[in-house]
Design a protein around this nucleic acid. Structure first.
Lengths: 236, 236
DNA sequence: AACAACTGTTTCCATGGTACACAGTAGTTA
DNA sequence: TAACTACTGTGTACCATGGAAACAGTTGTT
């Protein structure tokens, strides 16, 4: 009836009624989440198995199922814990610097936990931490003349850019040096088949790549676009 | 030495020297790609196993390893085949409608193959099809005064928005009706814990959600932001 | 005709998630 | 205090997965 989302909802949002009888519990959701995040940070999402997580916690893998309905829900828990609540001390500035600040902070989260990207594809139920970030954006746009739906859309737009930039950052990797291999392979491809992509080849020859610039470039365009709309709204 | 990227590169970019001796091959990369895309479209990326794909092709799973080094490379092949080359008849308009057209087409691709989103997280080697899309954006920005790196950054920005919107579309799903469960669960969460997210609750109460509007909203902001930069560049 | 290269198949293994039965533990109740 | 009940973590078992290795059959070359 409630389906899979029901279990995720209970895990993420509670209530978590502590059982009255039976042996003391060895674990709790907090410790599980911390250990899981450590594991995923260090070795990537693929290395996160019930087995390895249980080992790290000093229990059998089946013990985890006393706390978490399954791996899907486990990952959802890890994601919300990794994102964490939006820092409440932030905010207070004008909308533009507030949003810029927000985006920088979110980028930092995804850089710290690259696996969280792959774990947040497709529609899913947001946890409390995730929702607090959305709340922050909507609140930051107070007094800009933007409607409710528009503020949510702005959050979507910003998040898309943050995610896109995070994706190109090297993920928590098996072996270091894999990044060099990639750029080398891309270079080979372009020298071998560059004639099929003339505009691209010319563009690459022009400017230095400046991987960090794509971040600021996009962020500036988005904020400029929002500013134009806000000016239009507050102007008349 | 060459690593995993080397095998992906050979698979995606060739050369594919046909073997001179031995029995006739039963399969070819095209048939494999088509069958794999069908399977992933119908049942999602999780349902795509070597086993199931082989069954659909009428061979044993190990036969696939004669054509593809491993599952990672198989997925990379499927992705590039699913994206497909950018239609050459497109283009010719001014940069703004060209980019808008490009984004709409890319969105259509991800809507048709939702699993491709999850298969394109993290840095990876682009295939010929994927590169042709990037080529199209860079070429469309000819004569705008933007530099090479800036045009690439614009492509990144647009792609981020397309991906973000695609992510919220319901993926190729196990059971239909799972979307309703999600929205129902989200609704429950907000009515139960809405007091912790006042701005968000107010925003949701204000406007109708208009899921389709987030797409156009973001696209318009991005293009406006680009237009501002281009005007500045061509103006002086 | 012998050979070498290549095909698809079979067998095997380690690892993955998870269902289930079990013995031990700790509050509750008689 | 003794029985009961809810709960714990463990052990075993099952099936699906990706992949390695050995194999017999097929085809062009010598």
């Amino acid at each position: 009836m409630t389906g899979k989302h029901g279990e995720i909802k209970r895990l993420l949002w509670g209530p978590h009624a502590a059982p009255a009888r039976g042996p003391r519990r060895t674990l709790d959701l907090d410790r599980i989440a911390r250990a899981g995040i450590e594991l995923a940070d260090a070795e990537g999402l693929a290395a996160l198995s019930m087995q390895r997580l249980a080992e790290r916690l000093g229990v059998t893998k089946m013990a985890l199922y006393r706390y978490v309905p399954g791996k899907t829900e486990l990952v959802a828990l890890l994601v919300d814990a990794a994102i964490g609540p939006y820092p409440p001390e932030a905010g207070g500035e004008d909308w533009r610097t507030a949003l810029e600040d927000w985006a920088v902070r979110l980028l930092a989260v995804f850089r710290r936990h690259p696996w969280a990207l792959g774990a947040t594809v497709g529609p899913r139920l947001p946890g409390p931490a995730e929702l607090s970030w959305l709340e922050a954006v909507v609140a930051a746009l107070d007094g800009t003349g933007l409607g409710g739906a528009e503020r949510m859309d702005a959050a979507v737009l910003l998040t898309g850019h943050v995610r896109m930039i995070s994706e190109q950052s090297p993920a928590a990797g098996p072996s270091p040096g894999v990044e060099e291999q990639l750029t080398a392979a891309i270079g080979e491809v372009l020298t071998e088949h560059g004639d099929r992509f003339p505009a691209l080849t010319a563009a690459l020859a022009t400017g230095p790549e400046g991987r960090e610039n794509a971040w600021e470039f996009g962020l500036r365009r988005i904020l400029d676009g929002l500013a134009a709309l806000i000016a239009e709204r507050t102007g008349r």
